[in-house]
Nucleic acid binder design. Structure first.
Lengths: 350, 350
DNA sequence: TTGAAAGCGTTACCAT
DNA sequence: ATGGTAACGCTTTCAA
């Protein structure tokens, strides 16, 4: 039965002030009451050290001032960064972020989303592993959902902060093509159990259009694993060759990573193989994590504006929670190619 | 009033089965009931799509199967990593991590801890900004607390996973001394509003003993800010000189950073100043974040074993929650100096 | 403006 | 093994 050291309850404040619990409840929230009683109640509450019990409040009101934040995969350093930023943003608005990690598993992702809903989170921010899952529909009915990155195609969300993947991919492939690259390997965090994500699909189309040969290879975010995959790609050992794409025996001249975390793995593998990033093998990332500029050479990557994303996502969620209308509930983040030193002219290209 | 699409409640399951809510409640938890009723209830519950409401359960039982995880400062990449790891660890045990960020502010840290307690978290894991704060005592009375990094000196915690700071600092200073360094700047995340932490105090003693001149300079974790501080330290501009320590005009030959995140700032500043890390200026970190080995040169740092820490901390917390006794509730993590390329012989040293 | 009382959905105690 | 029924601590009608 609960904890031994009891908290002061609303009833006790009521008794102390000679008011009803209802009156006290209102007074503490500044509703329906006269200035003076509010004052009196506040004082009594302070003296008794009263603080409303969030659980009881949640049960009675259905609200928690807690927002669920569901990361697709927290192994991704950029997502860690994003969650931290969202947490700060929410906290600034007196809301708490309940951060969960789906670990790249689409099923777990939905299971966690449901739990969050059951916990009465007022809103749910999600950076989805599987944006096309049907399960999102029901969840979005029960709680305002804001998706980050890709749109939840099956659900009516309260807001979306999307990456303009097409523009980002076009920008990178154009850039690489201009540098003379014709064989590019794309490393995507999409796992085997996950359906292709929009970027995976689009990058093939874009490459075809530009006359670039791409090979799309799935890759874990964790550094050690990513390094392993990159190692195989760079040496073009059989395990690194995907089942799709032309059976080209030459290794790629450039690697395009759909997350900076993965790019770090390529750096590690390149160092092992004594390949100079930039000169021997070009690398492009996709997030602009802060440390990317500290690498040698600094990682050329696509910046989506982390802070802005966190701000917008939090804003949309809060607006939805408070039932406010917003002008645009779909924010499209434009890519900015941060051209640094990791992608240079392809070897052998004039 | 709550959400429109109502959930099925315990009472409905009771009515459907002709049992009392009590019986159903017990049955679903496999207590006091016969095999067959349990079966019958389970079936009915499944058919009705019943799932216990965690909030109501929390109010009635005082338990939530949620664990609060309070980060001192989530700008620190290593702490991001740690939180992610703890979250995974907890999730594996069917508990949810409620991750909050104190943003380096000791007052906020305590305020958040209280909120977490009010949320009825079953346990609290904390990587404290201010381990010596008195406020921890009360919190630890109400909920099992496990501290990570430094011990909460004023509180009776349920467990501790401590870094052997003294050993770590000794190892690094010994190492630097052996390389001929005599002027070392220590960059610590400890903020102006925070009391000195054990490591800050100890590093001065250790340096004195070894005949090393140290200057302890506070430094933010965020890359941009850290770079700024490091810039001043490397050029020894007035702003970089702390008020304490000898007024030495020469810049340090080595920088010892109490977090890898800060070390990244030093790399950035060194690059700006065209100083070669290792040759012109030695840098040592204190966490071993995964990306540290990807830098050029790879960062020499102190490894505490992230995964182990997350595991132990989660284990201690869960044990305390379940009221189990543990042999050792104080785990001391031994430092392992990962000697890589960022600290070399001091310039001018034979 | 204030009070009385009915929930909110469980759990846990006490009978049976 | 089950049922009845207080808690749990708050919010929110509905009256006054």
């Amino acid at each position: 039965m609960a904890r031994p050291n009891k908290r002061t309850t609303l009833r006790e404040v009521a008794e102390a002030t000679g008011l009803s619990t209802a009156a006290v409840s209102y007074a503490l929230r500044g509703k329906h009451v006269s200035k003076e009683t509010e004052e009196r109640v506040r004082k009594a509450a302070a003296e008794l050290g009263y603080e409303a019990d969030p659980i009881a409040r949640a049960l009675a009101s259905g609200r928690t001032s807690t927002v669920g934040v569901l990361a697709g995969d927290l192994q991704d350093l950029w997502q860690q960064q994003l969650m931290a930023a969202i947490g700060r943003e929410l906290l600034a608005g007196d809301r708490y972020a309940l951060i969960l990690d789906a670990g790249g598993d689409p099923e777990r992702e939905l299971a966690l989303a449901k739990q969050l809903r059951d916990q009465r989170v007022d809103g749910l921010l999600v950076s989805p592993v599987d944006p096309s899952a049907e399960g999102w529909a029901k969840i979005a009915e029960a709680v305002p959902v804001v998706s980050i990155g890709d749109a939840l195609s099956q659900a009516r969300t309260a807001g979306e902060v999307l990456f303009d993947n097409r523009a980002g991919i076009d920008a990178v492939l154009d850039y690489l093509r201009g540098l003379g690259h014709r064989r590019v390997t794309v490393l995507t965090p999409t796992g085997p159990s996950t359906p292709d994500r929009p970027a995976d699909v689009y990058v093939r189309q874009a490459a075809d259009r530009l006359g670039i040969e791409v090979q799309v290879v799935p890759c874990a975010q964790e550094l050690g694993e990513a390094t392993g995959v990159a190692r195989r790609v760079l040496t073009n050992s059989p395990a690194g060759r995907p089942r799709t794409g032309p059976a080209d025996l030459a290794p790629p001249t450039a690697v395009f990573c759909f997350s900076d975390s993965i790019a770090y793995g390529v750096y590690a593998a390149a160092a092992e193989a004594e390949l100079a990033v930039g000169r021997d093998i070009s690398v492009v990332g996709f997030d602009d994590h802060p440390v990317s500029r500290v690498l040698t050479p600094p990682l050329t990557t696509v910046d989506w504006g982390l802070t802005g994303i966190a701000k917008e996502a939090a804003r949309l969620a809060v607006a939805a929670i408070e039932g406010r209308r917003v002008r645009r509930k779909r924010i499209l983040c434009a890519p900015r190619l941060s051209e640094r030193g990791s992608a240079l002219r392809a070897p052998g290209d004039a």
